[in-house]
Computed example of a mutant assay.
Amino acid sequence: MPADGPRVTHVGGPTALVEFDGLRVLTDPTFDAPGRRYAFGWGTGSRKTAGPAVAPADLPALDAVLLSHDHHADNLDDAGRALLPSAGVVLTTVPGARRLGGNAVGLAPGATAALPNGWEVTATPARHGPPLSRPVVGEVVGFALRRAGADRVALWISGDTVPHRALSRFAARARVDVALLHLGAVRFGLTGPVRYTMTGREAVELCGLLRPRVVVPVHHEGWSHFRERREAVERAFERAPAAVGSALRWLPPGRPVEL
């Protein structure tokens, strides 16, 4: 495996195992079996429709879990929560770390934490809904992973977010190699057309600022509240400028892919 590129295994939903030279991290752990319906608060909820492609018992020892937020089960379900104590550290939002306790550490956007073997992670801005929705949907962060002191971000994980000004500012100045984007165009009947994660079209616009070498969509399948699936994302990237459209990469569930 090249030292400058990650090996990524898409487990399902937002969950991915990311392995760099000397580092293993897991994103947003979701390992419950399909079939159950989960309440997200304020009358919203979703049913899990697909199980994980990798079992928790088959994971390697984890240096860190990068948890965009702890309060929605499509980003942290019961089985995912059970494995958190086995990780070296759980990096998440500041209120999320207070709720989780134990080995959880909260990062506000812009804050950086050291990881083993010369790596570091910086929290990046995310907003999980329209303006003024934060009191309802809660805090979310993304993560920029890089070698300590490096200018280029080796891997950026968007977290559950819609486009907003702080995210655009980050994208315009960041130098990102691989981007894991939480898509799905999440909507709920209760709140009508309001979206809580990016569409494929919005992802294309964001990548026009980011200019990543590789774009990996996650968080677009496996739950009933995801309203935009792979086909719609593909259409959006097919219409994109070549430099953006050619970066799209789909990962087969459960199989490690070097990027």
Rank of each mutant, 00 (worst) to 15 (best):
P252V: 04
R173C: 09
A64V: 03
G222W: 00
A144Y: 03
E202R: 00
G102A: 15
L145C: 01
R24N: 08
S86I: 07
A113G: 13
A171W: 08
A3N: 04
D151W: 08
V194F: 10
L83F: 07
A236R: 07
H219F: 05
I157R: 00
L76F: 11
A97D: 03
A39D: 13
W223F: 13
G138R: 02
R239F: 03
R211W: 03
L183V: 12
P135A: 06
L62H: 07
D58E: 12
G245E: 11
V54L: 12
V136D: 03
G184N: 13
E228D: 07
G101H: 14
L17M: 02
L259H: 11
V153T: 15
H219K: 01
P95Y: 12
H225P: 00
V194M: 13
G184F: 10
A243R: 14
W156C: 03
T92W: 08
R173E: 15
P256M: 04
M198E: 01
V186N: 13
L67R: 01
A123Y: 06
S133K: 09
E221K: 00
A82D: 14
E231D: 14
R146G: 08
G102H: 15
A243N: 05
A126N: 08
A166Q: 14
T191K: 04
A114V: 15
D78T: 12
L67E: 00
D77A: 03
V214T: 06
